[in-house]
Every structure is written in structure tokens, then in C-alpha cells.
Design a protein around this nucleic acid. Structure first.
Length: 557
RNA sequence: AGGGGCGUCGCCAAGCGGCAAGGCACUUGGUUUUGAUCCAAGCAUUCGUAGGUUCGAAUCCUGCCGCCCCUGCCA
């Protein structure tokens, strides 16, 4: 087959970059950056930006910087910055060189502001925020010039200097660009460049009492770092003329190209930082790394491999269309990765005791089973087989039609990795609840099928006497609405059954000595991960990552 | 109202004037000691809509319709 037949189609950003390279722009150099504000935890939406920026740099043998956009000390913390670094590394990316910070450029930014003032392209304004809003106009009406707009350059220079020196109260003055109050693009109506804010900054401490705004900072930071392609989300499209205006009007060579793409929205989830915080503060979930959270840390604790997240992002593509991606695609990516790498094991979530009457009472057989049915290199594990075992309550019915391929009274079933058994008797308690099954096994069915009959069902099990008790948590979607953010009150559509805890679960012994964070497939159930926080050998705790694809559940029997 | 974007299968998404890729989901068969995996097959006479240009239009032009973003001293 030819290369072209296998080649993935390029996305629109790659087309732009290819054209830039063909035209010799930036001497063929490709340099991107991931610029988070350290004011919260990274989520699936950020994962897209990370994969895109680092991915593009990788593909074009360029570089991708990590730059913290730390221009608003009111919101930022070092704790967030550290968590962001860890999440990026976990996703499998490494930034070029040291970490950058917008605050590294505060002095240069200040000098560029002075340049704008000297060119009569910026002025110090004393309008109150309310006045400024009125002067800005609206979609229908053009804005009006501030009465302070025509101050002499020298006065602006003096005032700006004194703003920095701390002579004025917070909020008393701002530095504004002098562009066009009648612009149909409201972002161009003399945007604020600097505000006075006496706040301790996580990196510059109390050195500054004025802080530059995003629109002034971001483009210059990109240019200083030699970024060639500044990739951001759609809502910044209106900012692009301002991005270009700033770069065009200061003395700097590099002019990065801003390109906007659409955010990654996932059905049945939210990514708004405010709402995520609400989930935590309202104790709807147990922290930022709760396995139901769409945060990177939540997905990690849930057992999603980084590779699966990368693949998912790749599968969703890069365009300018607003879209909402099906959860099914994420789950597909997770299963695909885990199917290959997760060792198999057996665990019974809802144990039902089963006694094999023709099996000797103190006999224990150490059965061998492959860790992976399609990958012999993963080796084998040992599973003890005994007279008393547990099966799942859902794998037994007193009577059923032959669609039910599990254990039925009077019928046979295969115990996975072990023998064929037949159920002879059901024992119930006073309330009529099934509490024990009495069965017989066929000793000639280990590793082979009976010759005279067909046994179609296979169920999983663990030894009653040689298994370990464990807690297993199963998760379902956090919201019952496909678009929780659009609900009047998103907390009203929280799924009350998003967490199901099985406290009586039993696991095969090999699972009791694993490492926190290890992934497994519990056969016939799904993929599970040893909890990275609360797993101990004494009290094993597993989280369900995702269930197996289940065509049985779709049938109505 | 003004500005900026976007409309191709249930969900993503190629396509850039020559006769609708691919993935997910779904359906149907086959293999199987996981109702998993794997394998095979099916799944848009049609590209928001109405006109126009052309031998030929998802692709070009025009009008309309729909959705998203913008009136922080947030990023």
C-alpha cells in the first residue's frame, strides 16, 4: 500500500503551517506554546490544547514552551502551577527548556507600554469602571472618547510612571491603548492595558502594583519567546486585531500568527472552572481528582491511560466548528488502550456462595490462567480453586430462556479458567432470598470441552476461602443532561447514581499485591484500576475505569 | 442592532469544480473458556436552504435560515 493511502488527513492548522513552511515564513521554524493561567486544575479541554501545541511542535521538529500566564495575582497560586506541570508531564509531554512566565517579562512589558505612550498610542485614563462601560457604547452604538484621551504625551508618561511607583489607589487609573472608540469590534475600543492592583504575586512578590492585561501581555510574550504559531480557542478571534495591533506598534521583530480552533466539549460533562469548583464545594464529588471529574487528575485516578486521552483528542480532530463529542468516543479510546495493556483477573462484585458438592472439602487446586488471552508474553497467574466459591448474583437465575448464557438451576455453565458445573439446588433464606447454590462439577472439563454436549455460557468466580475481600467503586456519568451547562441549575441534573460502591466484593489473590494505579480487566466486568490514594494490601480498593462493551445489556431478556 | 465565526450521516470528520474518505455509535454474520477482543459485511442518490454560474457544484456567486462568540480595570 502506498503512503498516501495510510496518511491521516491534515487539519486546517497543519495546512496553514505547511503553507508557511513552503513560503519560507519564519525560516521554516515552528514554535508553539501552552499558556495556562495557574488558577485552576487542567481538564479534558486543556488536554486538547496541550496535545495540539506539543503535538504540532513534535511533528514539525519545533519547540513548545510552557508559559504560565500569571498576570492576575488575585487568582493565581503556586499549588495550581505545580499541579499543571505534573498533569502535562503525565500526559506525556515535555516543554522546551525552562518554564516561562508572563511575569518574567513585566519589565519589558512596561518598557513597551512606554513606547506606546511615546508614540501617542496609549494614555492614562481616570474614568471609573462604570463610566468606562458607558463610554464604551454597545453593539448598536459606537463608544465615546474618554475626556482624558488627549492628554499630552509627557503627562501620560509622568502618570504611568507614578502608577508604577504606587502613588495612586487601586482602580484609580488605567493605561489604555488609543485605537478607535467607534470600532465595530468592541475589543478595539481603547482597551485597557494596565491596571493598578496591590496584590502579592506568586513570583514577583510585591515588586509591582500595576499589572498588564491579557491582550497586552500575551502577544508580546509570544513574540519575546519567538513563537511562530499562537494557537488559541475561538472566543479569541475578536482579539486577533488587537494582538496584531500591539505587535505592529512596538519595536519587536517577531510577529506570531494567532490561529483559533474550537474547544473540546464532551457530552454529559462540564468544564467551566466555576462550575467544577461548585461541585467540590457542594461536596457533590470528593475533590479535583474525583474519578468522576473531567479533570486530568480525575481521569488519571479513574484509570484512563494518558495514551487513551491523547488518542481521544486525536480522534476528535481540530476545526473551527463548535462541537460536542460523544462520551462513547472517549470510552472507545480508553478500552482500546486498556484491552492491549491491562492484565486480566477475576473479581466478584456481588458474591453469591456456591458449593461444589462433589469436590473434596480441603482440596485446593492451583489453576493456571493467562494474564492476557491474546498476549502470551504477559505470562500466567495462579488461581486457587476450592469446594466453595463465589459467583456474581447476576450470573444465576432459577429459570430462564436460552438467551441467558449463564448459570440456571438444573443447567450447566463453564467457570472461566476452570471446570464446567451444574446447578442442582437453590437454597433460600427465610425471606426467600437466594443465599447459596449447590452444584456438581465435571472433573473432565478442565482445559477442554465435554465431548458429549455443548456448554455455551462462561461465568467468572473466585474461591470463597482463598480470595480477598475488596471495595470496588463503579462510576456512571455525573450528569443526566447531555449539556449540563445549559441547564438553569446544573446541580439539579446531577446523577444520583454516579457512584456505586461494592463493599462485599471478592478478588482473586493475585490482585491483592498490586501497585496503586495499576490497570486490570476484571473479566466480564470491565477495566479497573487500583486506587492511587486509598489502595492498600490490607484493604484493596479499585475504581471502575470503564465497563466492557456490553451487547448483552442492550438486549431485553 | 454592529462585529467576528460556523453549518457534510445519531456524534466527530475528510473533501478545496469531476461524480460523498475514515473513526465512533448502530445492525448483521463468523471465531472465541470474557455476551470482551478479533474478523467480515451493512449504514449520506446527498453536503442548512433557495436561486445562479458551469458540460459538471459539498466545492464558485447571491439571497435567506440556524447556531456560537464579543459591551471585565478576567484569561
Amino acid at each position: 500500500m502506498s503512503d498516501s493511502e495510510n496518511q491521516k488527513p491534515l487539519n486546517f492548522i497543519q495546512h496553514i503551517i505547511n503553507e508557511d513552511i513552503a513560503n519560507g515564513k519564519n525560516q521554516g521554524r515552528v514554535h508553539t506554546r501552552f499558556p495556562p493561567e495557574p488558577n485552576g486544575y487542567l481538564h479534558i479541554g486543556h488536554a486538547k490544547s496541550i496535545c495540539l501545541n506539543f503535538g504540532i511542535a513534535e511533528q514539525y521538529k519545533g519547540q513548545c514552551n510552557l508559559r504560565f500566564d500569571d498576570t492576575n495575582p488575585a487568582k493565581e497560586s503556586d499549588e495550581y502551577a505545580k499541579a499543571i506541570e505534573a498533569d502535562i508531564r503525565w500526559l506525556g509531554f515535555q516543554w522546551a527548556g525552562d518554564i516561562h512566565h508572563a511575569s518574567d517579562y513585566f519589565e519589558q512589558l512596561y518598557q513597551f507600554a512606554i513606547e506606546l505612550i511615546e508614540k501617542n498610542l496609549a494614555f492614562v485614563d481616570e474614568l471609573t469602571p462604570e463610566q468606562m462601560q458607558q463610554y464604551r457604547g454597545n453593539f448598536a452604538e459606537p463608544g465615546k472618547n474618554s475626556p482624558y484621551r488627549d492628554r499630552p504625551v509627557a503627562e501620560n508618561l509622568d502618570l504611568f510612571h507614578r502608577m508604577r511607583a504606587g502613588e495612586f489607589e487601586d482602580g484609580k487609573m488605567v493605561l489604555r491603548a488609543k485605537i478607535d472608540m467607534a470600532s465595530p469590534n468592541i475589543k478595539m475600543r481603547d482597551p485597557v492595558l494596565y491596571r493598578i492592583k496591590r496584590m502579592h504575586h506568586i513570583r514577583t512578590g510585591d515588586k509591582w502594583c500595576i499589572y498588564p492585561m491579557y491582550d497586552f501581555t500575551h502577544c508580546i510574550s509570544d513574540a519575546i519567546e519567538g513563537v511562530t504559531h499562537s494557537l488559541c480557542t475561538l472566543e479569541f478571534e475578536d482579539h486577533r486585531p488587537l494582538y496584531d495591533w500591539v505587535i505592529d506598534n512596538i519595536s519587536i521583530e517577531c510577529h506570531p500568527q494567532q490561529i483559533e480552533f474550537s474547544r473540546l466539549n464532551l457530552a454529559y460533562t462540564i468544564t467551566s472552572k466555576r462550575k467544577l469548583t461548585q461541585l467540590i464545594e457542594g461536596h457533590y464529588v470528593n475533590g479535583w481528582d474525583d474519578p468522576r471529574m473531567p479533570t486530568i487528575s480525575g481521569m488519571r485516578r479513574r484509570g484512563y491511560p494518558a495514551e487513551a486521552i491523547r488518542e481521544f483528542v486525536e480522534l476528535t480532530g481540530v476545526t473551527k466548528k463548535n462541537h460536542v463529542v460523544d462520551m462513547a468516543l472517549l470510552e472507545f479510546s480508553v478500552r482500546e488502550v486498556l484491552n492491549k495493556k491491562a492484565p486480566r483477573a477475576m473479581a466478584v462484585l456481588r458474591p453469591l456462595k456456591l458449593v461444589i458438592e462433589n469436590y473434596p472439602e480441603d482440596k485446593v487446586e492451583q489453576l493456571q490462567a493467562p494474564r492476557h488471552p491474546q498476549d502470551e508474553s504477559m505470562g500466567k497467574r495462579t488461581i486457587p480453586f476450592t469446594r466453595e466459591i463465589y459467583i456474581d448474583q447476576e450470573d444465576f437465575r432459577e429459570q430462564s430462556n436460552n438467551k441467558f448464557k449463564r448459570l440456571v438451576l438444573g443447567k450447566e455453565v463453564r467457570l472461566r479458567n476452570a471446570y464446567v458445573i451444574r446447578c442442582d439446588e437453590v437454597i433460600k433464606d427465610a425471606a426467600g432470598k437466594i443465599c447459596e447454590l449447590r452444584c456438581h462439577y465435571d472433573e473432565n472439563t478442565l482445559g477442554k470441552n465435554p465431548e458429549d454436549r455443548k456448554v455455551k455460557g462462561v461465568i467468572h468466580w473466585v474461591s470463597a476461602t482463598a480470595s480477598v475481600s475488596a471495595i470496588v467503586r463503579r462510576y456512571d456519568r455525573l450528569f443526566n443532561s447531555a449539556n449540563p451547562a445549559a441547564e438553569e441549575d446544573f446541580t439539579q441534573c446531577i446523577n444520583p447514581d454516579s457512584l456505586n460502591e461494592y463493599t462485599q466484593a471478592r478478588i482473586e489473590p493475585s490482585l491483592a499485591s498490586c501497585q496503586p494505579g495499576e490497570n486490570f480487566q476484571f473479566e466480564r466486568e470491565g477495566y479497573f484500576v487500583a486506587d492511587s490514594e486509598d489502595y492498600t494490601a490490607e484493604k484493596p480498593l479499585f475504581n471502575m475505569t470503564v465497563g466492557l462493551r456490553d451487547t448483552w445489556a442492550r438486549m431485553d431478556v
